[in-house]
Design a protein around this nucleic acid. Structure first.
Lengths: 254, 254
DNA sequence: GACTTGGCTTCCACTGAGTGGAAGGATTGA
DNA sequence: TCAATCCTTCCACTCAGTGGAAGCCAAGTC
């Protein structure tokens, strides 16, 4: 633990975690060799540890020989408070919202300096939407992101303002403009984007707050274009957000 | 370390997994002591390992001092093939079904000898429903369970037939009767239950299969009572199930 | 304000669990 | 047949992990 340069994580636990961490959206299935490489472990070591993980059910070995995340980890993940509270409570309201608007509906929370999509309802054919449950996206280019950013602590906002990456030609990258947008979000109670994240997709979003309490999440919808429908969409969103907020246990946050 | 309490897992990896395994639906938040006890580890050992898990993000320590499952594990769980394929594809169809019936909608797969609920859509006020995403229930007492059982390998069926526990007064516990019901399920293409899992709730369910392939999941709805609505419900279910089946990649199963 | 209780954190000498290089298999493909 | 990948097993060495014990700290309790 002393500051000598060099020593990577060497505890067995960290090796196990390195193996688990090797999985991500782009690596859902890997051979042992790939897994070992990505985890930075010698093959033989990975072999032993992976064996234990499989025995326990954390990983599963497919017929093809590749390893994937197992059901037991899926179970475990469901126990995370990220969703158990918020998501379950919000679920029926999301359906209402979907029924009322037929647009893709999103429920998101802030995770550090990005937006984490906690739930999504999508129709069959819909606007190109990049987000999926578990996705993280930058805050400045999405409707829900702007809402959460508008209500985030100053240090988070500061960081985001210095990292306004351009994603489409319409992404807002001038701190000044974003700052005034956020002011408007706080004043009007909703945010919107137009093709700032992906072309052909616009969005409207509102905050979800415990009554009289802090903003804990954001609710948004994605549509091809907003036009004069905005008042209707905002109204629907706000009704749903109110409903969710009222149903939240007063403790939950993070 | 020598044989104190039963079989302490001896590898470090197994100790780590024991800690993770200590979490379940009834134990979503635990103090270090509780965690150590449930994992069967000495406090000092648990302390060290839990520390590593927290550093990595597998667990989170709340302000109250209790540990809960962290976001990183939630992320990981989402990568499990249990849901990524099936659930995503089915999602829009489930909405349609919900919109058409306004009943609680279930998507389930077989996990060993029980039913695993992979997704659920519920309205605001609904029938008392025990199942939630991630729940496992006995196969013989639920609609989706009967469907999956009807299409399960013989050994699974055999096991289930010798373990027909009674849950409500209406649960089918006679192997003979269940066997003929399953025959009917295969013939008619749907299953139903009436208060066999919980009083005041009935259900209808149909199989989901890759076209010309095996049954991979079941789709069901729960309503207060079925009555003369059955043909309509079955029709709606079958349309949705067909749609899902057609959209499935031909490889996916288990 | 002394005492108890329960849970958390740190310490450290000992030792066996974990390590990983190397060699041997099993497939696949040219 | 040979070569390239990837997987599995082996084993002597050693350092990471262990866990009993002692000390902390806060919240009760008398």
């Amino acid at each position: 633990m002393a500051g000598n340069s060099g020593r990577p994580g060497v505890s067995v636990a960290s090796r196990v975690l390195a193996l688990l961490g090797a999985f991500d959206t782009d690596h859902r299935a890997m051979t042992l060799t790939e897994l070992a490489n990505r985890a930075g472990l010698p093959l033989a070591t990975a072999y032993r540890l992976v064996g234990e993980l499989v025995d326990w059910g954390a990983l599963v070995r497919r017929a093809s020989g590749e390893y994937v995340v197992g059901r037991k980890l899926w179970d475990l993940g469901l126990l995370a408070p990220v969703q158990s509270g918020l998501r379950q409570i919000a679920s029926p309201f999301l359906h209402d919202l979907y029924a009322a608007t037929l647009a893709t509906v999103h429920l998101a929370v802030r995770d550090g300096t990005s937006v984490l999509y906690v739930d999504r309802l999508a129709g069959h054919v819909s606007v190109p939407v990049v987000s999926d449950v578990g996705t993280r996206l930058p805050m400045h280019a999405t409707g829900v992101g702007k809402v959460l950013l508008a209500h985030a602590p100053e240090d988070v906002r500061a960081w985001v303002f210095t990292n306004l990456t351009r994603i489409t030609p319409y992404t807002v990258t001038q701190p000044g403009r974003l700052r005034s947008e956020l002011r408007r979000v706080r004043r009007d109670g909703f945010a919107q984007t137009s093709e700032e994240m992906s072309l052909g997709a616009s969005s409207v979003a509102v905050p979800i707050a415990v009554p009289g309490g802090p903003v804990v999440a954001a609710l948004g919808i994605v549509v091809p274009s907003i036009g004069r429908d905005r008042p209707r969409l905002v109204a629907a969103l706000q009704v749903a957000a109110q409903g969710i907020g009222r149903s939240l246990p007063l403790g939950e946050s993070r």
